[in-house]
Design a binder for these strands. Sequence first.
DNA 1: TTGAAAGCGCTAACAT
DNA 2: ATGTTAGCGCTTTCAA
Lengths: 333, 333
Amino acid sequence: MKVTIKDIAKIAGVSTATVSMVMNKKDERISDKTRQKVLKAIEEMGYVPNMIASSMVTKKTKTIGLIIPDISNPFFPDVARGVEDRANEDGYTVILCNSDNDVEKENAYLSILQEKMVDGIIISPSSNRTEFNDEFKKIRIPLVTVDRDVENIENYGKIIVDNARGAYNAVRYMISRNHTRIAHITGPFSSITALDRFSGYKKAIERANLTFDESIIFEGSYTTDWGVESMDHIIEHNLDVDSVFCGNDMIAAGVYKSIHNHGLIVPDDYSVIGFDDVEISEILSPDLTTVKQPKYKIGYESAKMLIHMISRKEIDKKDYILSTELIIRDSVK
Amino acid sequence: MKVTIKDIAKIAGVSTATVSMVMNKKDERISDKTRQKVLKAIEEMGYVPNMIASSMVTKKTKTIGLIIPDISNPFFPDVARGVEDRANEDGYTVILCNSDNDVEKENAYLSILQEKMVDGIIISPSSNRTEFNDEFKKIRIPLVTVDRDVENIENYGKIIVDNARGAYNAVRYMISRNHTRIAHITGPFSSITALDRFSGYKKAIERANLTFDESIIFEGSYTTDWGVESMDHIIEHNLDVDSVFCGNDMIAAGVYKSIHNHGLIVPDDYSVIGFDDVEISEILSPDLTTVKQPKYKIGYESAKMLIHMISRKEIDKKDYILSTELIIRDSVK
DNA sequence: TTGAAAGCGCTAACAT
DNA sequence: ATGTTAGCGCTTTCAA
């Protein structure tokens, strides 16, 4: 039989109310003698408080939900880590949910989390989500969206990364190093991040009075394969290109591959810049110059904002825009 | 005000027991008319069942805890994903905990998880754990250990990977390709996996009647830096080595780096084999030959075993040993 | 400084 | 086929 607060009360010869108070450090006015008796009983019996029962009355589970597309995507582990670290600081625990960018799955998790009475939710919404008058609208607990922006939902917090500016700075850097024909290999334009990075690229090109050339824009997926394929095309068709700005580091890795496969050299033959700064950027040789996303910080700050919303019982509408940082390594001539 | 089962009962003009029954699909003997009334009320009121209250009586939270050293370590996201997928199949949700290989933190999570009344725990125990007569012994709920083995605890499940055999096969492969001076750059021998891989290496060397040479064993950490440092040493001291078997892929990445930095070529100058098969092994050029760990499967099977233990209410002691696979790519001559 | 007791929202045994 | 009711283990007034 599980030992409960009643057992402790009996052993210590006090009431359950007293035990509860010392457990929760609301024991300023409990005599030291009583406190010791209680503590001793707890120790001896190996009492483990039942937080479910406590949640029942306090209406707090000290749990938050984290919904992301896929923890296997190298972008998210650091985000998750940031969330967990911040949550942990305030005694929260986090439930991890992978949505696979599937709106159905996302909705399912959204409602399970609410049934489990989590105190709040952090979500990186599926890029396929088009209708927001559904599950999202029904959410009555604190919510913060991350990374991908979502229109039409109210009463929620928002952490975003300034992708456009990150891209802009990267391309400007290339231009400052005398590159004039900068290709852009990007992820799908159905994703807002890809769109934003593209717009930053374009703006930098135009501001520098270079000609924007659609034929050296390669829209595809955020994968190594897409990087290889696009770069193969550039090299084999002998396109007039001196450098390439990649939508993310995976694409950049593919670009490296293609360049090496053709017996060419980074940055001598082509300069390359990536985006994200995942682990691989320091593994590639030469080390990849890339736009660093504050992944850990994204997670950390979103948890911070959420917890703030939870404890203030008020909705904190302020958006939080995080900026990127250009990490200059060795892939630009 | 939150709507509760009572409200639904009132609106539908039935008892809470009835509502409960239709909610839980235990409604074979509820008339169709009543069921419809209930369903309609639930729909109209936007009723969200309170699972905490239900856990209170059923003693099941449908939640499992997952304790790993660090989700940012590229080995774990796939494991976590496997756990979540299997858990999800049976309606379980998972709480993610990062221990940082810190026994204190691990113990803290172990007790929090029990307070939260999780139905079971999957843990990749800290390699620093030496005493098992502590928190571990006190655990009264289903538990399965993963990846790292732990002695002296009973009543738990166990998923292990045959590291020794994986290493053995890798080294044998190198030998079959006429390598005779195979260096081994490995992680810390405080970790059982490093020890096992080393023993596999040694066995392969000895079985082939090659001489085991301690001076080409480099024990350090599972990092790129350690790979660079060790390989630099090998090259700069001109050690008699024709190939290197690495304790993991990060080390192999460092080895590549060092080789490239010295203007040498993989595999022409040195053949290289890694361990784990994380994403980077396909990003390195040439593609890295490596020993693949079934990361996703490790997670999936551990969750499967755990859920089995949970639902059978009996402890399933059988260990489950997963094997590795040598993925032959282009880094061995 | 401490205890008694109500009640959180639900399920399950027992009635009807 | 459906309703009544007693808890589950805790916290929190309110009394003493």
